[in-house]
Amino acid sequence: MKSVKEEMYKLIVEYAQSDEKIEDDTELKALNIDSLVFIKMVVGIEKKFGIKVNGAMLDVAEFEKVSDLIEYVQKIKGEATA
């Protein structure tokens, strides 16, 4: 089974609107993930992991880097950070 991190990388690639290489400290802004694309991505995340993202966290401004988002998903998925 793939880790949450690997799955998340795949998802982010799908929604990113740029050719920027995706790494843990890549900023979501650099990937051109704007507020609306972000909401679409959250919908994808919820489906993929069967989780529910808190309403307040639907805002892209809550996450600066790729790693922030992954950590958040790991947290609610109950998977300990590596």
Binding site: S35, L36, I39, V42, V43, G55, A56, L58, D59, A61
Partner: peptide, 10 residues
């Protein structure tokens, strides 16, 4: 405002 906007887009 963002909360309700985002909820609606969702």
């Amino acid at each position: 405002w963002k909360f309700i906007r985002n909820a609606l887009y969702k």
